[in-house]
């Protein structure tokens, strides 16, 4: 009997360790890291409506940062946003809506009207891609610089030095992806892949399946 128990124990041990190992190696479930909480904010968008972080609960939000007098410096970033906006329907996201938000760090110049005109010029679909800002520059600095940890700084000639970064936030307001610099894959490609991974977790991690997703977090099975 004792011997039997011992073998049972060994078998269990092998199954558990082997299972954990196979889980990490084959990664049947992949997730995105929970990086930190996204900042809270209340913005005014191109239609003059309030846009707060609470409004964006329950959906995925992709942020980028720019300004309308940007010129060609924002082209690449805008192109990526546009590409993603147009391809959102092709992604397997279930029913989870995705909102793209461009926050302007030039509130003095970027009135709702100018944002509206800019949105049209870059081909933004107002239902999916919103442009917004806060009138108070110091508050704005805390949101973009302090919260999203994205750099921008006014220059003497009225232009801005800034990082064309993207930040991906999930339905609970947790930052799940930061795209600050060119990695091995293109940003748009990676972000769209990541959106699907996020949706997969949001839809499927219910009941007992949530254990697998928690395990994926624990074993750092992060989507590349």
């Amino acid at each position: 009997m004792k011997r039997f128990l011992l073998y049972g124990f060994y078998t269990l041990l092998i199954v558990v360790v082997g299972g954990a190992f196979a889980f990490k190696v084959f990664q049947p479930v992949q997730v995105l890291p929970r990086i930190r909480l996204a900042p809270g904010f209340a913005l005014i968008d191109q239609a003059g409506e309030r846009l707060t972080n609470e409004d964006l609960r329950g959906q995925f939000t992709l942020y980028n940062f720019g300004y309308t007098r940007c010129g060609s410096a924002c082209d690449l970033s805008n192109q990526s946003m546009r590409e993603m906006q147009d391809k959102l329907d092709e992604l397997a996201l279930g029913d989870i809506p995705v909102t793209l938000v461009t926050i302007s760090f030039d509130p003095e110049y970027d009135t709702p009207e100018r944002l509206q005109a800019y949105a049209e010029s870059v081909g933004a679909d107002p239902a999916r891609w919103r442009f917004a800002t806060i009138a108070d520059p110091s508050l704005l600095k805390y949101v973009i610089g302090g919260g999203f940890e994205t750099y921008y700084e006014a220059q003497d000639d009225g232009s801005f030095a800034f990082d064309p970064a993207f930040v991906l936030v999930d339905g609970w307001g947790i930052i799940r992806g930061e795209y600050r610099y060119q990695t091995m894959a293109s940003d748009a490609e990676r972000i769209m892949r990541h959106l699907e991974v996020l949706a997969d977790e949001a839809i499927n991690s219910k009941g007992s399946a949530s254990v697998a997703y928690e395990a994926a977090h624990y074993f750092l099975c992060y989507a590349p």
């Binding site: 610089g145 302090g146 994205t150 750099y151």
Partner: peptide, 8 residues
């Protein structure tokens, strides 16, 4: 070095 927000 770049300032993100005051002190950061």
């Amino acid at each position: 070095l770049r300032e993100l927000s005051p002190g950061k």
